[in-house]
């Protein structure tokens, strides 16, 4: 590490915050409110290629058509790929250190054709594998706010049973 020089000045952006307020849109909101109010996953189906997207988005990119038809999707699925995060970093959404280690994975929910990114409750890489079955674990009823984090994580299902 370079030693800190007193003759060269740096200033910090300080404690000031610049909060943003993002819109999920009507479709994204539908996905989030279904989870918040009913602990259910909804997808949206492309009228042209028939692919089902989760989370809900308005446009199918490859077909470039707008989608309308909402379809239920399972809260179980399988791992497409994963990593176990071990380095500490500050989460820019909270300003706090993200608790590590944690596993996050690309997850393919049964009945959908797209993937979502979420936590899995296992941090030993030896115990994780591509194709492993997982199931969503939701936050308690009084804690769900309409965020992807209303899903606490996905639980690795026992493969032996």
């Amino acid at each position: 590490m370079a030693e800190k020089r007193k003759d060269l000045i740096k200033i910090s952006s300080g404690e000031a915050e610049q909060p943003f307020r993002w819109s999920a849109g009507a479709d994204g909101s539908k996905f989030l409110t279904e989870i918040r109010d009913h602990k259910r996953f909804m997808g949206i189906k492309c009228p042209k290629c028939g692919k089902v997207y989760v989370p809900i988005r308005r446009v199918c990119g490859p077909c470039y058509v707008e989608m309308e038809e909402l379809v239920p999707v399972s809260d179980e699925g399988s791992i497409v790929t994963y990593t176990v995060v071990q380095f500490g970093f500050v989460d820019p959404s909270t300003g706090k250190q993200k608790p590590v280690p944690y596993c996050y994975a690309v997850i393919h929910l049964d009945g959908s054709d797209s993937y979502i990114l979420h936590f899995v409750d296992e941090t030993d890489p030896e115990k994780l594998k591509i194709g492993a079955r997982v199931k969503a674990v939701f936050e308690d009823d009084d804690k769900r706010t309409g965020s992807l984090l209303d899903i606490k994580h996905f639980a690795l299902l026992d493969q032996t049973g």
Partner: peptide, 22 residues
């Protein structure tokens, strides 16, 4: 994306690690 990526994402290192695992 603030809704679908940021809650779980851990930047370039972890994003690339997904590719390496696969």
């Amino acid at each position: 994306d603030p809704f679908w990526d940021r809650p779980c994402f851990a930047g370039a290192v972890a994003g690339l690690a997904l590719e390496a695992t696969q």
